[in-house]
Design a protein around this nucleic acid. Structure first.
Lengths: 185, 185
DNA sequence: TATGCTATTGACTGATTAGTCAGTTTTCTT
DNA sequence: AAGAAAACTGACTAATCAGTCAATAGCATA
């Protein structure tokens, strides 16, 4: 594995355990098994390292979930697929999950940054469609998107805290109904 | 105003603007107009200052909202009152809102800490009642509570970002229906 | 082989910060 | 008033940390 990737992986783990400010750049380099200087060769500042990681995670979430939505699906099926994929991705990538959570409440986070990403744009298009067709409540698409994201996060936190996995289909559907009912008309 | 209170208010403002680690204790003391040493007289460590502030906010949220729930109210009315009170409180106390948000995603936060508070206990009792009576979905009370809290937070963020207030009754109800539908059977 | 570019190292630095401490002032108690 | 306790001050320190830099190694191309 190249050193840039090693740095990103190590940083993600340490950030998710100790937070951005609780993790010294020197420690990231040490635990990644590279020199201190090379970190600043690839990421001129700590801020840029953090931002690069944010896009890395969103890219991978996009690749993971969007491929699962098939063309002929109904709106509810598409939303379900995206909802489940987001939960699975966050359960399987614990460090990514914690990292994003911290990033979004940190001073690094700006809404513009997020809006740029195609994952968010795809979700917003889908929600707009649901509002136009009268299937969703008359509520701003951005608020619906944020609300859904928050529910995914809440659900993942809950499952992890209770050492649960989504193996019970009936329970999974009940969880989804909670999210779906909040936006459906 | 006594110096302890001055310190808490100043800390809350600075923390909400620059984060916990972005705010030096010396700066808190300076901007509060007191000496550096007195901060550590009242709060032996920075961590204890942060924890004291968390309880301060939850106490005030409790006082603000619980008084508004009247005895004869239906379950939906009580939930609505608590929901609206939480939104109003967070809109009116921007620094508290930002502070709590950061606290809950920081290493300082532990679930046990939160569980101790009577505000949370009151909400959980109400939700348990709703589940028992068959008015709510068959989903763990803790998950419902977290989901509602997340929706309040999302809503407040959205209103603030768009410089909105809750003066439109019809819109307010539509927002509440979003939260209510997610937990009602 | 020479030239230049990129990758890599690790010791170093200037700035910052949480927390201390020795001593002073104010307030409370008897 | 006397004595004790609590409030308060601000200069100081030991540690930490983001980022620098001068030097080396490897590699591609001409």
């Amino acid at each position: 594995m190249d050193k840039r990737t090693k740095l990103i992986l190590t940083a993600k783990r340490l950030f998710s355990e100790h937070g951005f400010y609780g993790t010294a750049t020197a420690r990231i380099a040490r635990e990644a098994g590279v020199s201190n200087g090379i970190l600043f060769h690839y990421f001129p500042t700590k801020d840029l390292l953090i931002k690069a990681m944010f896009f890395d995670v969103k890219d991978r979430l996009f690749d993971y979930s969007v491929g699962q939505v098939y063309k002929g699906a109904t709106l509810k099926e598409s939303i379900y697929t995206l909802w489940l994929a987001a939960i699975e991705f966050n359960l399987e990538n614990a460090n990514d999950f914690e990292f994003i959570r911290q990033f979004e409440t940190s001073p690094f986070y700006r809404t513009e940054t997020e809006l740029e990403h195609r994952y968010v744009q795809l979700c917003l298009e889908l929600i707009d469609k649901g509002i136009d067709e009268g299937q969703f409540k008359q509520i701003p698409a951005m608020l619906i998107f944020k609300s859904m994201s928050a529910q995914v996060e809440t659900t993942v936190r809950f499952l992890k805290m209770n050492n649960m996995v989504l193996d019970d289909v009936e329970f999974t559907h009940r969880l989804f109904e909670m999210a779906w009912d909040s936006l459906a008309k």
